[in-house]
Nucleic acid binder design. Sequence first.
DNA 1: GTCTATACGCGGATAGAC
DNA 2: GTCTATCCGCGTATAGAC
Lengths: 202, 202
Amino acid sequence: MARVSIRKAKAADTEAALKAAARQLFVEQGYLKTKITDITRAAGRSTGSFYEHFPSKEALLEALLGDLREQASEEVTAQLHPADHDLTDREQLRAHLAAAWHTMRDNLPVVLAVHEAAIAAGPGSGEWWQQLTTDTVVLRDHLQQLRDHGHPLPGEPELVAAAMGGMLATLAFALLPAGPDRYSDDQVIDTVTGLLLGGLRG
Amino acid sequence: MARVSIRKAKAADTEAALKAAARQLFVEQGYLKTKITDITRAAGRSTGSFYEHFPSKEALLEALLGDLREQASEEVTAQLHPADHDLTDREQLRAHLAAAWHTMRDNLPVVLAVHEAAIAAGPGSGEWWQQLTTDTVVLRDHLQQLRDHGHPLPGEPELVAAAMGGMLATLAFALLPAGPDRYSDDQVIDTVTGLLLGGLRG
DNA sequence: GTCTATACGCGGATAGAC
DNA sequence: GTCTATCCGCGTATAGAC
């Protein structure tokens, strides 16, 4: 009986339940505001049970981040990257931005949480800049390549990549948690594509 | 004797000392990480003294924000706005972006703190989007005007304005706290100007 | 492995002397 | 108005029974 085995598996793997509850709460009320007791309660477990699986809330986030990377690497190896993107081509730029957007949407809980954690770390840590640059390395490489082929850019590849990534991330954080009520995914992607295309063409 | 009157004034106005200490700490270690006791200690006062001036850390931030608005309104009425900006003109776009950048730089402690507070409020609050849009109303109006004159935009004025503001704000938060070590102000402003200009021209 | 109950520490906030 | 000393609540983390 499927139902029984499902229950068994669910009961056995409290870890999965905790992760699922955490994901939901991170979107609903944010990572910082979410207490460990909130997670255990939402997962239907007791407080003490949490520490059997994770030493802290940060560790739980690390675990979620690990799951994300694992899944992401599968997808990447499965399909993209064509390696030689030409970001001055409207369709290719749009595809790249759309991929980034949907990745953020699909992994919103973790993406959101990591961002909150970075903010909470404080400005002095330099973590904000580091996170922004590492998240946009791929973009930077494409821009670097473009530049190597003689194409003029509005500035340093790293800086341009950071600017583009910052724009997209800000919109994602501001719009996605509320749902598609204000602007549709396509609307955002089209707008950003149009706004950036001219600058990349030079 | 200047020295005496200075000491007197300083002693009398603990409030100013607390504000100054808060500003410094907000940049150094961030708003969220800064405890009330950190502020009083940095200001050379006792814990209890704080509450004689502000009921809470949030109230202190409000006060700082009030100071900022007061000063900002003076500057604005003193000089700008020419009302009919043409953001498709490189110099005018640059001037606008530069003004925004320097405002953020000059008021970094408060700007940073408000942002951190908004993040801590959580995604569900919708506060992120609200703050982004209110901070870019002026920009939106200029874009709206441009559109009314028949100029094509890459998307809804509000959305385009939010995208532009998000880009600039992200770079400011990531780069300004560290000082001008990585990229100079001009470098950032030039890059962003070049990146956005093409998209606004259509 | 999961529960209940409880201890611990931190930061916010107040009491009361000066 | 400022200080010192103290309290209180919340969230983290642990102890110990089952």
